[in-house]
Amino acid sequence: MITAERKPLDEILSYIKPFKRILLLGCNECVTVCAAGGRKEVGVLASGIQMSMLKNGASIEIREHTLERQCDPEYVEELVPIIDSADAVLSMACGCGVQQLATRFKDKPVFPAVNTKFMGGSDRHGVWTERCQGCGDCLLGVTGGICPIAKCAKQLMNGPCGGSVSGVCEIGDEVECAWHLIWERLKALGLTDQYLEIMPAKDWRAGGGSGPRKIVREDLAE
């Protein structure tokens, strides 16, 4: 999933300061799962904004709404009947959702209420870690299912570097050495010979090096 974290309240307030009526928009997908921008977080943020306003003797009209998916035009279309009831939109979706809104409603100010963080998964309840950087040319088939691009701090394709100690990365206690994990997996799978093959320099074009990426499925695209 795409993970996100709410921005500091002060930053959010600075965006919406000039406006009287706000549409606070959640998304039912990834940001709901990572507890950053689903229906519940929309409620908590609306309440926080309202209280900040009241505290300063001001008030604001906040309309709470959560779309099934903010990154798809079909769902964003749902907003047409209500969009004009707001002076600005505050989105709790990832950056993809925010941009979808900005593209669809060209004259409506749209602001992000979360910082989009990374593509990751849940380690345990309340903890998410990065797993993929969308390099466009998946290596997992030769690295035992563990990604050195996303999980090695130096994205070494031929690691581990000399800073790996007891399975921990040199950058800190919390980070596991990706190459240590890869090695343990290759051992478990009986594929240690694979380690000796040098992984060649990566072609970053697939990873965004040649500009914004696009997928066109001829069989689906209209």
Binding site: K154, Q155, L156, M157, N158, G159, C161, I198, M199, P200, A201, K202, W204
Partner: peptide
């Protein structure tokens, strides 16, 4: 940056 690694 790490466009390439030391071995590359």
């Amino acid at each position: 940056v790490h466009d390439i690694d030391s071995i590359q």
